[in-house]
């Protein structure tokens, strides 16, 4: 943009557009891209911390080589996380659309349910998440995300007790509660998606539903012909958000692995987190490419 020829090529629209995003561009370059480039640089060095700063000792591609060929734990975690993300994100999407549909219309008690489902967001601090394991009376008070699961186990344990006291088939309950365990974890990742879908649902012009009603469309048809297509922008948004959120959650094993390495093997932690981020980036681009073609805009 420095030479005059280029400047003339910019239309007024280009200029105003660029003006709007200017703060971000500056911030991105100075406070994001530059430090990131530095951290790429770290991946090719061995780092030791000194009183005056960091000592860098070039080692070439050693870190990357180690990551791909020797670090089997990391590779294994990546593959397991990809399978679980597909399942969990799909469930999150279905459930949050479903819950949003249930919560969108007025009915007595709607406010209460909305608040209940949004509360996990407020209690989302790491300190809270780490504390869940301790309620059950385990003797150690360590911050371990696996204890998140202990807590959820107790949740369903309570339900299990009630149901089994009625004497219904136990294996069936076992299966059901196993899902409920997972459901609990998912619910704590869902509040934002539900809110986005509620907003999305309410943005659908009501006259479309009136027309559909007059034409005699069934509820099923109305949902698939009106609600769903007009919800596609929100779906894309939530899909990408959920995937990224799942990958970057602090309860995620890989994120924990990277965090641990940040303390003593800084250069390698940078390598891991770069490999991980590139993977997420590719996944998001693929999802975006596939889904965005099917998104229907309001215009």
């Amino acid at each position: 943009m420095n030479n005059k020829k280029r400047r003339r090529l910019l239309t007024p629209d280009d200029k105003t557009g660029l003006l709007f995003v200017l703060p971000f561009i500056i911030g991105f370059i100075f406070l994001f891209f530059k430090p990131l480039l530095e951290s790429v640089n770290y991946t090719f060095h061995r780092i030791s911390v000194d009183a005056n700063g960091l000592l860098l000792e070039p080692i070439g591609f050693e870190n990357w080589q180690y990551l791909v060929t020797k670090d089997s734990a990391f590779v294994k975690q990546i593959s397991s996380i990809i399978t679980s993300v597909t399942v969990e994100v799909l469930v999150i999407m279905f459930m949050s659309i479903f819950l949003a549909v249930l919560l969108v219309n007025k009915f007595p008690g709607r406010l209460l349910f909305r608040v209940c489902l949004f509360l996990p967001m407020i209690f989302g601090a790491d300190a809270v998440l780490h504390s869940f394991g301790m309620i059950g009376g385990s003797s150690e008070m360590t911050a371990n995300s696996n204890e998140f699961m202990i807590m959820s186990g107790e949740t369903t344990g309570f339900i299990k007790e009630i149901i089994s006291s009625f004497g219904i088939l136990t294996p069936l309950i076992e299966k059901f509660t196993a899902y409920a365990d997972k459901l609990f974890k998912l619910l704590w990742n869902m509040p934002l998606q539900i809110v986005i879908f509620i907003i999305g649902l309410q943005a659908i012009p009501p006259h479309l539903y009136e027309v559909a009603k007059m034409e005699g469309a069934t509820a099923w048809e109305t949902f698939w012909k009106i609600t769903f297509p007009l919800l596609t922008p929100s779906i894309l948004l939530c899909l990408i958000y959920s995937v990224i959120d799942y990958f970057n959650a602090t309860t995620n094993t890989i994120v924990q692995m990277i965090d641990e390495n940040m303390v003593n093997r800084l250069d390698y932690a940078c390598t891991q987190s770069w490999a991980y981020s590139l993977l997420i980036f590719v996944i998001v681009l693929v999802i975006n490419a596939i889904v965005s073609r099917r998104v229907i805009s309001m215009d």
Partner: peptide
């Protein structure tokens, strides 16, 4: 997408 920890040290 980028985990914030990556850029924290620089």
């Amino acid at each position: 997408i980028m985990p914030i920890q990556t850029a924290q040290l620089p």
